[in-house]
Design a protein around this nucleic acid. Structure first.
Lengths: 217, 217
DNA sequence: TAGATTGTTAATCGATTAACAATC
DNA sequence: TAGATTGTTAATCGATTAACAATC
């Protein structure tokens, strides 16, 4: 298997930072810069050059002393690590305000994510198009999921119906769920779930703010 | 200082999990359950009982062998840890589709977050109300920020203007920024920034999916 | 009492950081 | 060449997990 080195284990913190590096690198590329040092990346992202180099090691890209790393090369390598080089077709379930915001966010195309279909149960929006994506009834999901090569579903339904909808997604053959509902989904082991928990992030913010206010009071 | 024990350092992973525990506990409370064991919590959240107990230690709540922990007591203690017991008044900058989704999400009230004002530069929406919150011109921000006791700003503007708007927020006296724009903001050290990076989360998802597909192919 | 569950210490694990030789 | 930057090993740090006595 030729490409097997792409499938070594990369620590999750590294994966997250690689996504950040990619943002910066795309920005540098736009400005016509094609060499970058670990120090430059570290300064911009408020981290450490050693960590940047360690992270980059996982991409198999090597730099040149005194020169740094090749920007286009690094972009390509990171995109490959994250599987963003190929388009990730996806569908979205739950066309509420958050669902609409996600469908309409052009930024996801940079991450190789492309929405094919959307699903809901509200008769008022079924059959309409949101940002060019047609909204189908949830019941049509099983038939339409098979169109997708890589079966990614984005879940933006209210917490109350999240588990029920998840079960339907799993049954329809979905392999990965990007979950925006504020609860832990129950799924078979071979289905990947990645949560966006706004509350976790807000908790960190408010806790830090209290500590800051305490220290400066 | 009586309350100083509330300001011990709590590891960030613990803070994030406490937010998850709180979700579950509120759910249990709704169902009239008022005692819970670390095992029950761990099972529901797919984690380890020992870790749950360790996390709970930071809240100063003690349990009873054979019985577990008192649900209302634990809820109160976690809310205090996260500073969610008091209302966190906040304002939002950037009333695009994501901004609207956040303003309209009732769930944030459970986290003590309440939006007071919103800001934008689009004349079409300035003066209008979104979910009961009035949208002002960005220039009015400095005067209105002073109304807030704890100065939290939620940033949902496009990446291109994010740094510029951040500078204005800092100048207006904001102490904490919840950043939804996909870049690292530059701020003074005493301003807290917490990022929601959708791309980081998606990176983890697509990477895991590739590994799974590789293993099962 | 017996058994389940807590609280806490010690061991393990993994990620970050420091140090420094190799390289351009 | 001198100096900056990479690549990599070793040390440190902190979080998770295991073990088990104390308690109800």
């Amino acid at each position: 298997m030729k490409a097997s080195h792409h499938f070594q284990i990369i620590p999750e913190p590294t994966i997250r930072r690689l996504a950040d590096y990619l943002h910066l690198l795309l920005h540098l590329q736009q400005e016509g810069i094609d060499k970058v040092s670990s120090t430059t990346i570290a300064n911009d992202l408020n981290t450490d050059p050693t960590q940047v180099r360690k992270d980059i090691q996982y991409t198999s890209i090597v730099g040149k002393p005194k020169t740094g790393f090749d920007v286009p090369g690094l972009i390509g390598a990171i995109e490959e690590c994250l599987s963003w080089n190929d388009t990730n077709a996806a569908f979205l379930v739950g066309v509420g305000s958050l669902g609409k915001a996600i469908l309409g966010y052009e930024g996801f195309q940079k991450y190789g994510l492309q929405f094919i279909d959307a699903f809901d149960v509200d008769p008022d929006i079924i059959g309409k198009k949101m940002y060019g994506i047609e909204v189908h009834h949830l019941d049509e999901m099983p038939g339409l999921v098979n169109k997708l090569k890589r079966k990614i579903g984005v879940l933006t339904v209210p917490a109350e119906s999240a588990q029920e909808v998840t079960d339907k997604m799993v049954e329809a053959g979905i392999r990965a769920i990007w979950n925006f509902a504020p609860l832990q989904l129950k799924t078979p082991e071979d289905v990947i779930v990645e949560n966006i928990q706004f509350s976790q992030s807000l908790a960190v913010l408010t806790r830090k703010l209290s500590l800051l206010e305490f220290r400066t009071s």
